[in-house]
Amino acid sequence: MEAAAFYGFSVLSIAAAFFILFSRNLIYAAFALFLTFLGVAALYVLAGADFLGVAQIMIYVGGILVLLIFGIMLTHKPDKRDNATAHNKIEIPTKREIWGFLLGTGFFVFLGRIIFLSDFKMAGNSNNSKSTIKTIGVELMTSHLLPFEIAGILLLVALVGAAYLALNRNPAS
């Protein structure tokens, strides 16, 4: 049962990722990224990380993906022809396709070779039956307090910077 769920969600996320790669329409690619994020969240849950799965759904699907779709729509060149399939097209030259294919497959073969050659000795016992929220909370407030505060400051700086960048400054004036 667990294996079936694992392979099903793996195939779902990889197929959606391939759809992003081959799709010519950026809006469709963004919605396929939604499927990929959901598959990855399910993989987190199957690996025993329940809090991270929920955080993945809330942050990626609820925040980042909405922002990306906003970005696609705001940088969209209006096409006067009344053809629904012509919007948000991106042309890809063949040279880039060849380089992307070569680098992608080469990197995958390289990583796969490393994974198959390595011999992992797992030391700890893997008891993933209890919830991880308590452990994450205790660790964040004790031994990982400095990264936690730095992450908060980073988010504040990103918020201020993004708001300043997105101000409507008219270059004509």
């Binding site: 990889i14 992003i20 880039r96």
Partner: peptide
Amino acid sequence: ALFSIGLAIAITKR
């Protein structure tokens, strides 16, 4: 696999 596909997407998309 997901990392390689992401790399290919970042290279090919204009």
